[in-house]
């Protein structure tokens, strides 16, 4: 399981991005996951290109902004996991009306944290 974990996350990311695509007609595909105390944020255009500029905003379950940072251009940004007790909404906004988000419920975070570390 430990060896498979990176592949599992990659597969889940691809699956989520693929499922999200039809509904995100005019947006950006965003996926977030948790590894221990790290929040992993992935965003891509449907072409597969990774945005180079933009803003990542993280909101808690009450829609209160808890963290904001700039897009780094990496395919997977690693951020410190904020307080997730009410859940998290991870939003990537690259301007010109292009944005996307992913929602993590507390159960999602608990389940992902329970998976063994790679």
């Amino acid at each position: 399981m430990t060896v498979l974990r990176p592949f599992l996350r990659l597969w889940l990311s691809l699956l989520a991005l693929t499922v999200a695509m039809p509904a995100l007609g005019h947006g950006l595909n965003v996926f977030a996951s948790v590894e221990g105390e790290t929040l992993i944020v992935e965003s891509k255009f449907s072409s597969g290109r990774v945005p180079q500029v933009g803003t990542v905003r993280i909101y808690d379950g009450y829609d209160v902004l808890v963290h904001e940072t700039e897009v780094t251009g990496e395919s997977a940004m690693r951020l410190p996991l904020p307080d997730w007790s009410t859940g998290l909404k991870v939003e990537v906004d690259i301007g010109d009306g292009h944005d996307g988000y992913w929602i993590l419920t507390p159960a999602d975070v608990r389940r992902q944290q329970a998976e063994p570390e790679s």
Partner: peptide, 21 residues
């Protein structure tokens, strides 16, 4: 997430359903 069934309309209706597990 706890439901036995989640009924979607599709056709882009309630597109938040594509942005959560």
């Amino acid at each position: 997430q706890e439901a036995d069934l989640i009924l979607l309309n599709g056709a882009g209706y309630a597109d938040w359903t594509a942005n959560a597990s």
